[in-house]
Design a protein around this nucleic acid. Structure first.
Lengths: 163, 163
DNA sequence: GAGAATGCCGACCTTTATAGTCGGACAAAA
DNA sequence: TTTTGTCCGACTATAAAGGTCGGCATTCTC
C-alpha cells in the first residue's frame, strides 16, 4: 500500500542513469535496461512517456537513445513520478474536482488532503541529481516554523533530512 | 499511484466515527456503514482486522458492536493504515529484509527509503482525535483555505505541522 | 540505396491486488 | 431454547499493474 509503482521506480532509475552518463552522449533503452536488469520493452515505454512530457529527448537511429533535457538539479522526483503514473492522490476522496466519491459525509477528506500535500512536497524536494550520490547530499530542509511548541511529541518529520 | 486503499480509507472513517461516538456505547458495523454509505460487509472485514491488532474491541450479540480500546489521541493514522494494508513501503525495493528485487545495482533505494520514512512520520503524527474536528485542529501552518483554492497560488510546503 | 540498429506505438497477455459477497458461527436477549 | 442481531472467515468478480509481442518509422553505416 501507498506504493510507488514499479514503473515510477524504473523511471527514477533511468533518470538517474541518464544524469550520470550525461557526458557520454545518449543512452539507449537497452543500455539502461541491462544495467539494472529491467525488462527492456517495459523501460522503453516508460522512457517514451518521459519524452512526451519533455523530461528527456529521444534520438532515433543507430547510436540513438535518450538524454536529459534539463539539469538534473532542477528535476524533482515528483515530476518524474507524475509523468509516469499521473497525478498523485493519496486517496480516492481527493480528486481533481476535489470531490468525494462517498457522499459528503466523509469527514476525513480534509486531513488527508494535507497529508497528500506533504508527500508531494517531500517528493518535490528530492532532485534527480541528489539521487546520484548517496546519503550526504539529500537535504530537504525541515520546514520548520514554530514547531517546537508542543512539548514532548513532535520531533517529527524533519522530512528527509539526511545528513 | 501512491494511493491509500479504500479499505484504509474506510478504516480511518470508522475509527473516527468510533471516536466520536465513544460515549454512546459501541457502534455496530452496520451503523458505521450506513452513516457513510460504505458496503456493510466490506467494512465489517476491516473492523475485524482492527480488532485483531487490538485497536478496537468487538462485542458479539445484540446491541453489540465495536469500541475503541485506547484514547483516540494516542492512535495514529499510521497504525490504522498499517493494520489494514500491512507494512508500508513506498517501493518494492524496500522490503522487510531491506533487499532490492532488482539486483543490487539499484542505487535509488537509499534516497527512497528516506522518503518512505518521511511519509511514515507524517502519518504517525496524525492522530484519530485530530480527524474528528475539521481544519481548526489539524493545523497546517501558512495554509489559508481561500488561498488554497486559488489555482495558481502554489503554497509552500508545510508538512502537516500539527500543533 | 540496402541493411542494421534503434526508438515509437499499439495491442495483448499474465499476474496480482483490490472491492465486494455469501453462508455460517457466536453471543445476548426474550 | 428460540430468536435476533452481530461478528467472522472463506470465496468470487473486477480492475489495475507489470510485462510481452509484432509492426512501423527513423537514422546511421557501409
Amino acid at each position: 500500500m501507498l506504493k510507488l509503482t514499479k514503473k515510477a521506480d524504473y523511471g527514477l532509475m533511468a533518470m538517474k542513469h541518464l544524469a550520470e552518463h550525461a557526458d557520454h552522449g545518449s543512452c539507449s533503452a537497452k543500455d539502461v535496461a541491462e544495467a539494472y536488469g529491467i525488462p527492456q520493452e517495459a523501460l522503453a515505454k516508460i522512457l517514451q512517456r518521459l519524452a512526451k512530457v519533455g523530461l528527456v529527448r529521444s534520438q532515433h537511429g543507430m547510436n540513438g537513445g535518450y538524454t536529459l533535457t534539463r539539469d538534473p538539479k532542477t528535476i524533482s522526483a515528483f515530476e518524474v513520478i507524475k509523468a509516469i503514473d499521473g497525478p498523485l492522490f493519496i486517496t480516492s476522496c481527493i480528486t481533481l474536482r476535489g470531490e468525494c466519491d462517498q457522499s459528503d459525509r466523509c469527514t476525513i477528506r480534509e486531513p488527508l488532503r494535507k497529508v497528500n500535500e506533504s508527500i508531494e512536497q517531500v517528493l518535490k524536494n528530492i532532485k534527480i541529481s541528489q539521487m546520484k550520490e548517496e546519503p550526504e547530499v539529500i537535504r530537504v530542509h525541515n520546514q520548520d516554523r514554530n514547531q517546537a511548541d508542543k512539548p514532548g511529541t513532535r520531533k517529527p518529520a524533519d522530512l528527509v533530512t539526511i545528513s
